[in-house]
Computed example of a mutant assay.
Amino acid sequence: MAIGVKLVSNEEASPEVKQLFEQIEKQMGFIPPTMRAMANKPEYLKLFLEKSRVVMGSGKIDGKTKLFVALTVSILNNCEMCITTYTNKLKEAGVTDEEIVELLSIIDLVGGLNHFNNGLMIKPSEK
Protein backbone atom coordinates (compact mmCIF):
# COMPACT_ATOMS: atom_id res chain seq x y z
CA MET A 1 0.00 0.00 0.00
CA ALA A 2 1.26 3.47 -0.87
CA ILE A 3 -0.30 6.77 0.03
CA GLY A 4 -1.08 8.94 -2.98
CA VAL A 5 0.78 6.80 -5.53
CA LYS A 6 -0.70 3.96 -7.50
CA LEU A 7 1.14 0.66 -7.34
CA VAL A 8 1.51 -0.47 -10.94
CA SER A 9 -0.01 -3.92 -11.48
CA ASN A 10 1.33 -6.47 -13.93
CA GLU A 11 -1.71 -5.87 -16.13
CA GLU A 12 -1.19 -2.08 -16.23
CA ALA A 13 2.56 -2.24 -16.77
CA SER A 14 4.06 -1.00 -20.01
CA PRO A 15 6.20 -3.47 -21.98
CA GLU A 16 9.35 -1.90 -20.48
CA VAL A 17 8.00 -2.19 -16.94
CA LYS A 18 6.81 -5.75 -17.56
CA GLN A 19 10.38 -6.66 -18.51
CA LEU A 20 11.71 -5.03 -15.34
CA PHE A 21 9.04 -6.78 -13.25
CA GLU A 22 10.09 -10.14 -14.75
CA GLN A 23 13.70 -9.40 -13.79
CA ILE A 24 12.68 -8.44 -10.23
CA GLU A 25 10.42 -11.46 -9.80
CA LYS A 26 13.15 -13.79 -11.06
CA GLN A 27 15.61 -12.34 -8.55
CA MET A 28 13.33 -11.82 -5.54
CA GLY A 29 10.45 -14.22 -6.11
CA PHE A 30 7.92 -11.36 -6.03
CA ILE A 31 7.62 -7.67 -6.88
CA PRO A 32 7.82 -5.49 -3.76
CA PRO A 33 5.31 -2.64 -3.42
CA THR A 34 8.22 -0.18 -3.43
CA MET A 35 9.16 -1.22 -6.94
CA ARG A 36 5.54 -1.16 -8.07
CA ALA A 37 5.43 2.46 -6.89
CA MET A 38 8.73 3.25 -8.65
CA ALA A 39 7.23 1.79 -11.85
CA ASN A 40 5.22 4.99 -12.23
CA LYS A 41 8.53 6.41 -13.50
CA PRO A 42 10.17 3.48 -15.33
CA GLU A 43 13.46 5.32 -15.81
CA TYR A 44 13.81 5.66 -12.04
CA LEU A 45 12.97 1.99 -11.43
CA LYS A 46 15.57 0.99 -14.01
CA LEU A 47 18.16 3.30 -12.41
CA PHE A 48 17.36 1.93 -8.94
CA LEU A 49 17.77 -1.67 -10.11
CA GLU A 50 21.11 -0.88 -11.76
CA LYS A 51 22.31 0.98 -8.65
CA SER A 52 21.26 -1.98 -6.48
CA ARG A 53 23.11 -4.40 -8.75
CA VAL A 54 26.30 -2.32 -8.62
CA VAL A 55 26.22 -1.55 -4.89
CA MET A 56 24.99 -4.90 -3.56
CA GLY A 57 26.86 -7.00 -6.14
CA SER A 58 30.40 -8.26 -5.89
CA GLY A 59 33.00 -5.96 -4.42
CA LYS A 60 35.49 -5.68 -1.60
CA ILE A 61 32.74 -6.10 1.02
CA ASP A 62 31.09 -9.53 1.10
CA GLY A 63 27.36 -9.93 0.50
CA LYS A 64 26.47 -10.92 4.06
CA THR A 65 28.18 -7.80 5.46
CA LYS A 66 26.36 -5.65 2.93
CA LEU A 67 23.05 -7.14 4.10
CA PHE A 68 23.99 -6.45 7.75
CA VAL A 69 24.73 -2.82 6.85
CA ALA A 70 21.47 -2.57 4.89
CA LEU A 71 19.51 -3.96 7.84
CA THR A 72 21.25 -1.56 10.24
CA VAL A 73 20.42 1.47 8.09
CA SER A 74 16.83 0.23 7.71
CA ILE A 75 16.48 -0.13 11.48
CA LEU A 76 17.91 3.34 12.08
CA ASN A 77 15.53 4.80 9.48
CA ASN A 78 12.62 2.76 10.89
CA CYS A 79 11.67 1.35 7.49
CA GLU A 80 9.43 -1.64 8.17
CA MET A 81 9.48 -2.75 4.52
CA CYS A 82 13.29 -2.78 4.39
CA ILE A 83 13.73 -4.30 7.85
CA THR A 84 11.54 -7.21 6.75
CA THR A 85 13.28 -7.57 3.40
CA TYR A 86 16.85 -7.51 4.72
CA THR A 87 16.05 -9.73 7.70
CA ASN A 88 14.60 -12.31 5.31
CA LYS A 89 17.61 -12.03 3.01
CA LEU A 90 19.97 -12.53 5.95
CA LYS A 91 17.99 -15.59 7.08
CA GLU A 92 18.22 -16.97 3.53
CA ALA A 93 22.00 -16.39 3.73
CA GLY A 94 22.12 -18.59 6.85
CA VAL A 95 22.25 -15.88 9.52
CA THR A 96 20.95 -17.07 12.89
CA ASP A 97 18.62 -15.35 15.34
CA GLU A 98 21.59 -14.99 17.67
CA GLU A 99 23.53 -13.06 15.01
CA ILE A 100 20.59 -10.74 14.34
CA VAL A 101 20.18 -10.05 18.08
CA GLU A 102 23.93 -9.43 18.28
CA LEU A 103 23.59 -6.87 15.48
CA LEU A 104 20.73 -5.20 17.35
CA SER A 105 22.83 -5.09 20.52
CA ILE A 106 25.59 -3.30 18.59
CA ILE A 107 23.05 -0.80 17.22
CA ASP A 108 21.76 -0.29 20.77
CA LEU A 109 25.24 0.22 22.23
CA VAL A 110 26.59 2.56 19.55
CA GLY A 111 23.28 4.41 19.09
CA GLY A 112 23.07 5.06 22.83
CA LEU A 113 26.66 6.26 22.92
CA ASN A 114 25.96 8.54 19.95
CA HIS A 115 22.97 10.07 21.74
CA PHE A 116 25.04 10.55 24.89
CA ASN A 117 27.88 12.27 23.03
CA ASN A 118 25.50 14.39 20.94
CA GLY A 119 23.45 15.39 23.99
CA LEU A 120 26.57 16.60 25.81
CA MET A 121 28.12 17.93 22.59
CA ILE A 122 31.29 15.97 23.32
CA LYS A 123 33.87 16.51 20.60
CA PRO A 124 36.63 14.12 19.55
CA SER A 125 39.93 14.84 21.27
CA GLU A 126 43.19 14.97 19.42
CA LYS A 127 45.97 12.68 20.57
Rank of each mutant, 00 (worst) to 15 (best):
Asn77Phe: 09
Asn77His: 15
Asn77Val: 11
Asn77Met: 08
Asn77Arg: 09
Asn77Cys: 15
Asn78Lys: 13
Glu80His: 09
Met81Ala: 08
Met81Pro: 15
Met81Lys: 14
Met81Ile: 12
Met81Val: 08
Cys82Asn: 06
Thr84Lys: 11
Thr85Pro: 03
Thr85Met: 08
Thr85Gly: 14
Tyr86Ile: 00
Tyr86Lys: 05
Tyr86Gly: 07
Thr87His: 08
Thr87Tyr: 05
Thr87Phe: 03
Thr87Leu: 10
Thr87Gln: 13
Asn88Ser: 13
Asn88Ile: 02
Asn88Thr: 06
Lys89Pro: 09
Lys89Gly: 10
Leu90Tyr: 15
Lys91His: 13
Glu92Asn: 15
Glu92Met: 05
Ala93Cys: 05
Ala93Glu: 07
Ala93Lys: 15
Ala93Arg: 04
Gly94His: 04
Gly94Arg: 04
Val95Cys: 04
Val95Trp: 02
Val95Gly: 03
Thr96Phe: 00
Asp97Tyr: 00
Asp97Leu: 01
Glu98Thr: 02
Glu99Asn: 06
Val101Gly: 05
Val101Lys: 06
Val101His: 14
Glu102Thr: 00
Glu102Trp: 00
Leu103Asp: 00
Leu103Ser: 01
Leu104His: 13
Leu104Tyr: 15
Leu104Asp: 06
Leu104Gln: 15
Leu104Phe: 13
Ser105Lys: 01
Ser105Gln: 10
Ser105Pro: 01
Ile106Cys: 05
Ile106Glu: 04
Ile106Gly: 00
Ile107Pro: 01
Ile107Arg: 03
Asp108Gly: 14
Asp108Cys: 10
Asp108Asn: 12
Asp108Pro: 00
Leu109Met: 14
Leu109Asp: 02
Leu109Ala: 14
Val110Asp: 03
Gly111Lys: 05
Gly111Ala: 07
Gly112Val: 03
Gly112Met: 06
Gly112Asp: 07
Leu113Asp: 07
Leu113Ile: 14
Asn114Thr: 09
His115Met: 12
His115Val: 11
Phe116Val: 11
Asn117Trp: 07
Asn118Glu: 12
Gly119His: 12
Gly119Lys: 04
Gly119Glu: 03
Gly119Ala: 11
Leu120Cys: 09
Met121Val: 13
Met121Trp: 15
Met121Asn: 13
Ile122Asp: 02
Ile122Ser: 10
Lys123Thr: 09
Lys123Ile: 14
Lys123Met: 09
Lys123Pro: 00
Lys123Glu: 12
Pro124Cys: 05
Pro124Ile: 08
